[in-house]
């Protein structure tokens, strides 16, 4: 790891000022993505701005008809929060399935979203639920936030402060884990929302998380796995690597969407 200067701001404003002053600075919260890549010298930020001591940035609460999760809320907190369990149980389950217990004690929702790893779980939930990502500057819809592999709409001095989830009528997340890494080879989050149905897929797309619109159209007519007979995902634009071919991933999208719809309707 290369040398860097460590900063521990007390407020988001202080953190943003540090980012403005130090152009190559990186934000750290749980550090479970950034520290490993710094160890590999794939990243060598001269400044680290630690958000994990900003008070109130990890709050989980209901605001009106939205579940609001602070950016530095840890996966373990989301997984065990009675508020999340009541409002969107599928989201609590998703958080409880990220990494392992020690990773969940450090990793944060804001960090996962800002990193936009193509196999991360949270992006699927945010896109399917139609969440809004709130930063120190503006509000971003999920579909404008994610911009391909490891890239987001975030500017250099922009910091995620919270994520607002409108409550779905029904939702479920099912992932098919890579047997070695335990990351999602494919993960599908299905949400029946008051106005529509969304199916978001992680792990499979060569450009990161995306919506499986063919499945959404079918499910809009009737929210049941039975309407999915004959609906399939195209292998075009899907990852093909030693873990699975694009065709295999396309097949998994179909299987997991059915299972997710079944799980959502069983709740």
């Amino acid at each position: 790891m290369y040398e860097f200067k460590y900063h521990r701001p007390a407020t988001v404003r202080q953190a943003a000022n540090l980012l403005v002053k130090n152009e190559d600075a990186k934000v750290i919260a749980g550090g479970h993505t950034l520290v490993p890549v710094m160890k590999q010298r794939l990243a060598s930020p001269p400044h680290l701005v630690d958000l994990s001591h900003i008070e109130g940035l990890d709050t989980i609460e209901m605001k009106g008809r939205s579940l609001v999760i602070g950016a530095t809320a840890k996966h373990a907190s989301v997984a065990t929060s009675p508020i999340v369990g009541e409002a969107i149980p599928a989201l609590a389950e998703l958080a409880g399935g990220i990494g392992d217990p020690a990773v969940r004690h450090k990793g944060t929702i804001g960090g996962s979203l800002a990193n936009n790893d193509p196999t991360a779980d949270y992006p699927a939930a945010v896109l399917a639920l139609g969440a809004t990502i709130v930063t120190n500057k503006r509000r971003l819809k999920a579909e404008e936030f994610f911009q391909g592999l490891f890239s987001t709409a975030l500017e250099n001095d922009e910091i995620i402060t919270k994520v607002m989830f409108p409550l779905p009528k029904k939702a479920a997340y099912i992932k098919f884990r890579n047997q070695a890494s335990r990351y999602a080879l494919v993960g599908v989050f299905v949400a029946k929302r008051p106005s529509d149905v969304r199916v978001a897929v992680t792990g499979a797309g060569s450009d990161g998380v995306f919506r499986a619109t063919a499945f959404e159209e079918a499910l809009k007519k009737r929210f049941s796995h039975k309407v999915l007979d004959g609906v399939s995902a195209s292998a075009e634009g899907l990852n093909s690597d030693l873990h699975g071919s694009a065709e295999y991933r396309a097949h998994l999208i179909g299987v997991l969407t059915r299972r997710a719809v079944e799980a959502a309707t069983a709740k």
């Binding site: 460590y6 521990r8 750290i28 550090g31 479970h32 520290v35 490993p36 680290l48 630690d50 994990s52 373990a76 392992d100 217990p101 020690a102 990773v103 004690h105 450090k106």
Partner: peptide
Amino acid sequence: GACVVHLDGKAVKSCTTLAVMAD
């Protein structure tokens, strides 16, 4: 997980935690 310690009572991986973050 060979490096697991408790930070404020919770299991964490100390190979992925900076000492300054434990200040």
